[in-house]
């Protein structure tokens, strides 16, 4: 489909490759360092009622104005694992680009049931375990075609020179249009709607300060302020196992593809990428994920689509309709004029 709706070469005086994340959930240890490092860096308020969310070890719930990294936990039985392996094999057989083991991988045990285009390598799964625990750190996707950016009326949301999408909290007027525009439900306005006062510290021990940016739309900035200084985003730097990787998007996607191939060779056919496909509904994302099951299992939309995708066609149709109306009016005027 389309590249960035902002022509990459319009940025005259900066020459930066597009930056992004690759989150490899197969090595995530669910520690939530990313959640804390992000809050610390961005001085986000804590946003909890301090109650169990009833979702395994996940007490954060979802991304929002105050939480820009969220770790999901999914406990699964052997049956669900087998289903994931099936759906993964189906993806491979559809010939999706970038998925499938390279021919150079050595094969191990006897070949399993695989479609012909991957018959060159072994994809027999190891014994399906009886249980597994999926852990995955979610973040703003920094979409190629970003719904929030498309609909923002004030220019608060903009595309940085790194290809990321950032809210300028001094410009945002809190209209909330972007909230509806995000197909992932990531961006929200910061409110103080819960009972417990949220605290934001101004670095003085023993003191609480007021929450800042109340009412304004907030989301992950991919640590724009760190990036301009050539630093790594807080979450990526903290992640103990490099489940969160950061770098040039091109490199991230290449690494992701390699990793999926590696896992597929080991028989883990459930491994798949999310956001790496430039032809998906948002044009591919700046934050690419390696998942071990369907996106819905992780709370991610399976087929996200930017709401403005149909905009050109809508305008075209509206234009045709308007032209038609004009024509009809003109005809009516001309034809029905003399009586």
């Amino acid at each position: 489909m389309r590249q960035l709706t902002e022509a990459p070469d319009h940025i005259a005086h900066h020459e930066h490759p597009r930056k992004g994340f690759f989150t490899d959930t197969s090595i995530c240890i669910g520690c939530k360092a990313c959640e804390v490092a992000c809050k610390e860096w961005n001085r986000n308020p804590h946003d909890s009622a301090f109650e169990l969310l009833e979702s395994s070890y996940d007490n954060t719930g979802s991304l929002g104005a105050d939480t820009w990294r969220h770790v999901a936990f999914v406990e699964q039985s052997g049956q669900q694992i087998e289903q994931a392996r099936e759906s993964g094999r189906a993806l491979v057989s559809l010939g999706m680009p970038g998925i499938g083991p390279p021919a150079s991988r050595p094969s191990s045990a006897a070949p399993g049931i695989v479609p012909s285009d991957t018959a060159s390598s072994d994809t027999t799964p190891p014994d399906t375990p009886e249980f597994r625990w999926l852990m995955s750190s979610d973040v703003c996707k920094h979409c190629t075609n970003a719904g929030c950016l498309d609909v923002c009326p004030t220019g608060a949301l903009f595309r940085t020179e790194f290809g990321t999408v950032v809210v300028q909290d001094d410009v945002c007027n809190g209209c909330g249009t972007c909230v509806a525009g995000c197909p992932f439900g990531v961006i929200e306005r910061r409110s103080d709607g819960i009972v417990a006062p949220k605290t934001e510290r101004d670095f003085t021990p023993g003191e609480q300060a007021a929450t800042r940016n109340v009412g304004v739309a907030q989301k992950c900035t991919l640590c724009y302020d760190r990036m301009v200084d050539d630093q790594t985003p807080a979450c990526a730097q903290a992640c103990p196992t490099t489940s969160i990787k950061y770098g040039d998007r091109e490199e991230m996607v290449a690494t992701a593809r390699q990793r999926v191939a590696e896992l597929q060779t080991q028989g883990m056919s459930e491994a798949r990428l999310y956001g790496a496909n430039d032809f998906d509904g948002v044009g591919g994302t700046g934050s690419v994920f390696l998942l071990l099951d369907e996106p819905e299992v992780y709370g991610l939309p399976p087929d996200p689509r930017v709401p403005t995708a149909d905009l050109p066609q809508m305008f075209k149709r509206a234009g045709i309709a308007a032209a038609g109306m004009l024509a009809a009016t003109a005809v009516a005027f001309v034809a029905g004029g003399r009586r």
């Binding site: 902002e6 022509a7 903009f158 020179e161 300028q168 301009v228």
Partner: peptide, 25 residues
């Protein structure tokens, strides 16, 4: 004036955004 005619990039950056620096620096 710039190539960002749709106002989706540098043209809409506020001064604060343009002067952004991490507190580590």
């Amino acid at each position: 004036r710039s190539s960002d005619s749709l106002g989706r990039g540098e043209a809409v950056t506020s001064q604060r955004t343009r002067e952004i620096a991490p507190r580590t620096a």
